[in-house]
Design a protein around this nucleic acid. Sequence first.
DNA 1: ACGACTTTGTGAACACGGGCACAAAGTGAC
DNA 2: GTCACTTTGTGCCCGTGTTCACAAAGTCGT
Lengths: 206, 206
Amino acid sequence: MARLPGYLRALTALAADGTLSVSSEELASAAGVSSAMLRKDLSHLGSYGVRGVGYDVDRLSSEIAAALGLTQDWPVAIVGMGNLGRALAAYRGFAERGFRVIALLDRDERVVGEVVAGTRVRSTADLPALVEDDGLAIGVIATPPEGAQEACDELVDAGVRSVLNFAPVVLSVPDEVVVRKVDLSTELQILAFHGQRLAVAEAVAP
Amino acid sequence: MARLPGYLRALTALAADGTLSVSSEELASAAGVSSAMLRKDLSHLGSYGVRGVGYDVDRLSSEIAAALGLTQDWPVAIVGMGNLGRALAAYRGFAERGFRVIALLDRDERVVGEVVAGTRVRSTADLPALVEDDGLAIGVIATPPEGAQEACDELVDAGVRSVLNFAPVVLSVPDEVVVRKVDLSTELQILAFHGQRLAVAEAVAP
DNA sequence: ACGACTTTGTGAACACGGGCACAAAGTGAC
DNA sequence: GTCACTTTGTGCCCGTGTTCACAAAGTCGT
């Protein structure tokens, strides 16, 4: 169900335009998928469409938001206050989507206490308290590769079950923990691969 | 071939440890895939393994780097100097992997001329010159969602054929252009979905 | 009230990618 | 030189996820 966020985004845009109802064809093209796929995905949520008409934009938005668990705010902690961590801390995109950054953490005692993006950096030793007292549920790993597994272990030990990993390493975690990976280098290397193929193709048949 | 960067990373780590040769089993576990898959992937590049022994670390690294087109530096431009764009401009992770950020661009004339991360912000109107004179090949879109398609069109018109999109929209591009998407909100929403499922499961069977 | 039309929901065909298992090929000891 | 052992390369099978195509269900005009 990795496509639900995309549908939700398309629906939000439609709602902002004042659209009340949308067909699978329209919504699918706005979300960049095929209409058959969209209908199959939505049918798994339940039958919220009306044959001959389409889907009610508001109704479907609510259903998807509920399915994704976006009816509540999710507390997030960012671990690792290097370049990337500071960038993420300053990025306002989290809050806009219902994710509240409640803590910035670092292992290094020299960084702890520093103020980044208006928030005081705390020690990773505070993690159990954050989970217990503030309901911390999602950890973002923005450490260097060497420290990523350790940061991840601390998060898991404290009770965090969802991790977003920006470090270019494969994390090993227990089965009940979900790790999503965002890897800028990998994406760029895939683009380089494409650039290379284009260059070769042009050299052969200019 | 989206796994090649992962293999390359694992190989680099092995080389740093002084390892000369590696079996598919070892390399696969370091990269987080199955050994059968690793062997199949590598066989597509050519037969660089020796039966009974394994793969030569240096040799394989070179072959993968060559296949990915990492023998050259790739010039990159970042479009959109908002929060995210500034964060990316300050992030040193690009340069470490052979990607040179040669330009920071913005559409807004009030931002053009400002100095971000030591570099003067230029206008998106400079794009054709950057492609022509500096060999710009990869564009990074860090604009707000509303401006993303326009930024993308400008990149494509100027001749850029590889785009890394951070904006939460579906970009439409000609067939020869490759777009990779990095979407923090989507990743977080998938994690929220997981958190929600965990919470529900615990409520049912505590 | 009825019929033409639109659009959903879904069963069935299809395609792709991953895993299994084994033959081929090389190494090293004796 | 031969034999036992290791590890690659690959043909085949299987499961998941996607597309196709159509029947069911509803709307709207007359």
